[in-house]
Design a protein around this nucleic acid. Structure first.
Length: 200
DNA sequence: CCCTGATTCGC
DNA sequence: GCGAATCAGG
C-alpha cells in the first residue's frame, strides 16, 4: 500500500479528529500504526498537544557515535504549532465497528473458554452511587456480546437474565488485566466494607 | 499486559 | 519517503 492522496487525506482527517495511530491504521488497512505515525511526522502534523502534560522534550540523546555524515537537517517545516485551543478531550470513542477488509491475520485471538470467574450480579450493594450510575451509562454503550464472542480483552460483565434472550456481556474494552471494563471494575471489586449489616 | 506516540535508521 | 524496530510513557 502506498500513501495515495485519498489515504493521506483520511489520515489527516482522522489524526485531526484525535484518532489514535492504530485506529487510523486499522481504518486505512494495509499499514501499521508505525507507518501511520511515521507518515504523520513526515507530513509535519505531529503534536496534538492538547491535554498532554509538559512531557519535557530534552533533545539530549547520547548517541554512540554517528558514522553517517552530519547531514544537514533540511527540514524547514516550521510546523505551525499554534495553540489548537482544544480544551475538551476528543475521545468520543465512537468507533465504527464494521468489517474492515483485513486479508491478513488468520490467527485471530482465540476465544476465551469461559469458566472464568464471573462476577456477581449487581445486587443491593452499597457501591458508590456514582459507580452504579456509570455502569448504567455504560450498559447502554455495551457491545452486548454473547459468550462466544468474548475475548481476552472484552469486559465479561454479564447483563440480564441468563435464562432469557435478553442476556449479554458488556464487551467493552477491559481495563488492563482485569476481566471487566473500567465501569464494571468499579462495581466488581468492592472496597469490602459494609459487612456487619448482613447478620447472616 | 495492553496501548500511545516519538525516534531512529536501513532500505 | 517509508516503516519496522525500538524507545518512553500511561
Amino acid at each position: 500500500m502506498s500513501w495515495t492522496d485519498e489515504r493521506v487525506e483520511l489520515l489527516k482527517k482522522m489524526w485531526g479528529e484525535g484518532q489514535s495511530a492504530s485506529q487510523i491504521a486499522k481504518e486505512l488497512g494495509g499499514v501499521t500504526r508505525n507507518a501511520v505515525i511515521g507518515k504523520v511526522h513526515r507530513l509535519g502534523l505531529s503534536n496534538r498537544t492538547a491535554g498532554t502534560p509538559a512531557a519535557a522534550k530534552p533533545e539530549a540523546k547520547e548517541k554512540p557515535a554517528q558514522p553517517a555524515a552530519p547531514k544537514v537537517e533540511a527540514k524547514p517545516k516550521p510546523a505551525p504549532r499554534t495553540e489548537p485551543a482544544r480544551p475538551a478531550a476528543v475521545q468520543p470513542a465512537a468507533e465504527a465497528s464494521s468489517e474492515e477488509p483485513k486479508p491478513a491475520t488468520p490467527a485471530r485471538r482465540q476465544i476465551i473458554p469461559a469458566g472464568q470467574p464471573l462476577p456477581p450480579q449487581p445486587s443491593a450493594n452499597e457501591i458508590s452511587p456514582e459507580a452504579l450510575a456509570k455502569v448504567n451509562e455504560v450498559e447502554k454503550k455495551a457491545k452486548k456480546l454473547t459468550l462466544m464472542e468474548l475475548t481476552e480483552r472484552t469486559c465479561k460483565w454479564p447483563v440480564g437474565d441468563p435464562a432469557t434472550e435478553d442476556f449479554w456481556f458488556c464487551g467493552l474494552p477491559v481495563q488492563q488485566g482485569k476481566p471487566y471494563c473500567e465501569a464494571h471494575v468499579g462495581v466488581a471489586f468492592q472496597p469490602m466494607s459494609s459487612r456487619r449489616d448482613r447478620r447472616r
